[in-house]
Design a protein around this nucleic acid. Sequence first.
RNA 1: GGUGAGGUUCCCGAGCGGCCAAAGGGAGCAGACUGUAAAUCUGCCGUCGACGACUUCGGAGGUUCGAAUCCUCCCCUCACCA
Length: 370
Amino acid sequence: MGALAFKITAHSGQARRGELLTRRGLVDTPAFMPVGTLATVKSLLPEDVAGLGAQIILGNTYHLLLRPGTKRVAALGGLHRFMGWPGPILTDSGGFQVFSLAARRQISEEGVSFRSHIDGRALSLTPEEAVLAQEQLGSDIMMMLDECPPAGASRDYIENALCRDSRWAARALKARSFDAGALFGIVQGGTYPDLRALSAEKLKLLDLDGYAIGGLSVGEPKEVMMEVLSRTIPLLPQDKPIYLMGVGEPADLVACSGLGVDMFDCVLPTRMARNGTLLTARGRLNIRNQRYADDESPIEDGCGCLACRSFSRAYLRHLFMSRELLAYRLNTMHNLYYILTLMAGLRTAIEHNQYDAFSRDFFNKLQAEE
RNA sequence: GGUGAGGUUCCCGAGCGGCCAAAGGGAGCAGACUGUAAAUCUGCCGUCGACGACUUCGGAGGUUCGAAUCCUCCCCUCACCA
């Protein structure tokens, strides 16, 4: 208590407009959290990130544990000071790396042992150590260590994992210091509604500050994801923030907000930016494409981001083709601006009880011919 | 003027009698990317009526069942000597 307060200020259908009050400031929800895995949102300055409209960012325990070390970050004054971001930070626990680095790790009741992807050295992460590392970082919202099973995992496997997750959640809570940040639990259960319910039941017994939904958008069809989500959200405490982990395609943000999700994070806008794909209301635009070589128009007419205000598609294409560093920065600014502006629009719509109209308009534009 | 090395598909560059439309880079073209091992990865990249055919390896001839690969002459580069 005290680490986090959440207040819902408006509803529009299932969609919720809320205010998440962390110990380092307010976050308006539904919120999108840009990912800054290694203590930086790649290519941007903290003031850029804030200027684009982000109120909270995500950092990563696993990566920072390996380099430069969470103990070192603590000695240097914590992650906020280290990276120059004074606002709220949510830290992932390393749970996703249990999934993405599956080939280099082993899971036991005690925890996870990894082979570092940098130098191959062995390291272990228990639920307690994950909390400790996040406390060393000075995290405002810590995530419990969990296992995120792949889409193809068997029912037995998923059930076994989620039961262990709930034990890990209890251990994480017990390990947390009294003055530490908030701690979220993570609901798993793959695409099985009853397993999702089981996971939610177990986690609800614990005094967690928020509930994340993990193990989605890991390869399952989109309709399945929406179906699972719509059946899982009602099972969670409605007075706590609900966080859909790893989801961030514009269409998903709109659709999932409509189901009641309050928080999102995703590498998609920043990674795509660095790979030359730009987000627009009409869909994706690959700036590498030949047809933009002589195009004097901005990425998107009417977009208020720095890249669109100042530069043409032709120039941005040139920068990207030349691998100029400015390309990554401008592309990232555009994509994050697009996403964060979309979230702001969504919040306003919910406040005015116009979620449906907003959503309809969004999908109509997306469908429209170029 | 002499001697030596060499001219390969957009570029660089392997190949040195058949398994070569020709390795490997680069460039180019297109696609993917959802709690970041990602400024990454994948595919295409001579032409066509395209599981086959046709035209290519400085030029022209020749040897051979068969040549980018061997021989002759010519053209052009580069290095060194005059």
